[in-house]
Design a binder for these strands. Structure first.
Lengths: 216, 216
DNA sequence: GGTAAAATGTACTAACTGGACCATTTGGCA
DNA sequence: TGCCAAATGGTCCAGTTAGTACATTTTACC
């Protein structure tokens, strides 16, 4: 009610949620860029609107912060997937759309990919204990399982088709395309990751998956 | 020529090559396990027959050791590939064999896979400057390029087939199968990585690649 | 307006870690 | 056999980094 602005006041405005959000965003980008050991808590703090003190206040320690950043990455990506509605399409077309979407979605979320790479380097030890992530992922395969079921009922998909194995195939292409881009580019050049070639690869991937799913 | 054994002597026996080899082997396993920042020079030294002093004597610094370990990983893997001879097989079968071999070979070399993962996390900065690795990899695709050419000449492969893009597809499946095993297992269980399921996935991968390569 | 708990700022530290220093021994060779 | 460069051992150090102690301010509530 005084006419002093925030800047003029000696003190500050409390905003716990925004502070947590701020820290998490910065931490995610830093961990994704440098890995767990490579990331520096001081660097994260300096890129924040707040201080290192608050990181430890809200997240306990470096590992706690990392775990929450990992969960945040999964949450964001799974949110983006939720908008995809394939129920109205015939199974083959639904599958083709799902593959193409997954391919593009992974490309659009490189930080998520990098966090998963880092988790794999660490043998998924932190992912394994996160109930949040486990719940998210069990749901992630539902769409695909539904498509498989419909395709089998319609007689167009193989009877022995396993949704988890198919998910493995779709993930392999979509994930590798982002995760191994640096080494692949360094060896074979970057043309394969520019737009025209990416469309070819995406189409190849769709065809490959359909070849696995459909009856001969 | 005295009858004193090595153990009884105050001194030691010089063996530069063995010392370098010893350090490299330990370093490769340590870097593969913990990444560049995660690896500790002291830990590497302690697992060696020699001392930290020798690491700096022969490799300069931590990055120098890492680079040499990376090169050693590539050398070992490419050596294993050299034994594969497919020239006597018709193109389709040669391709099928190459895919199956690559799939198995990646599984058999998890430390190599992890080193490549780590390089990708670091944006392939160290791989990019290694002439040793570049030379190795240009040769790595020769076998596949030859199969492609033969298949196209025989009229069984698509005319637009690009060996690099096909190599991408083969690598995606073979690499992902090892690199993402920890997170994939943590979420969906480990059955997919046990022998029966691995054979299914390998066969699926062969079929998928053939579907991409062959005329409709 | 008073009080206590939550939230924030500042400065510090103990331990770790990559790397360097100095001394000593080995082995090839004149 | 003596000499010198290569190889090795043992110890120490300076910079970094995760984490903490202590003080202060804000806010909710009565």
């Amino acid at each position: 009610m005084a006419m002093t602005t925030d800047a003029e006041r000696r003190g500050w405005t409390q905003n716990p949620e925004a502070v947590k959000e701020d820290i998490l965003t910065v931490a995610l980008s830093e961990f994704a860029a440098r890995g767990f050991s490579g990331a520096r808590v001081d660097t994260i703090a300096s890129r924040t609107q707040t201080s290192k003190r608050m990181i430890y206040y809200y997240f306990g320690d470096k590992l706690g912060l990392y775990t929450r950043a990992l969960e945040a990455a999964y949450l964001e990506v799974r949110e983006g997937e939720a908008s995809l509605d394939l129920d109205h399409l015939p199974p083959q077309e639904a599958l083709a759309r799902l593959v193409a979407f997954t391919f593009d979605h992974h490309r659009a979320n490189p930080d998520f990919i990098r966090m998963v790479m880092i988790e794999n380097i660490h043998n998924a030890e932190n992912l394994a204990v996160s109930q949040v992530i486990r719940d998210l992922n069990v749901a992630a395969i539902d769409k695909l399982a539904d498509i498989c079921r419909r395709g089998q009922e319609a007689g167009v998909f193989r009877a022995a088709l396993d949704p988890v194995a198919l998910h493995w195939q779709i993930s392999a292409a979509s994930f590798f395309n982002v995760s191994n881009r640096p080494t692949f580019s360094a060896i074979f050049g970057s043309e394969l990751f520019e737009e025209p070639a990416q469309e070819v690869i995406r189409q190849q991937t769709v065809e490959a998956i359909l070849a696995i799913a459909c009856k001969a």
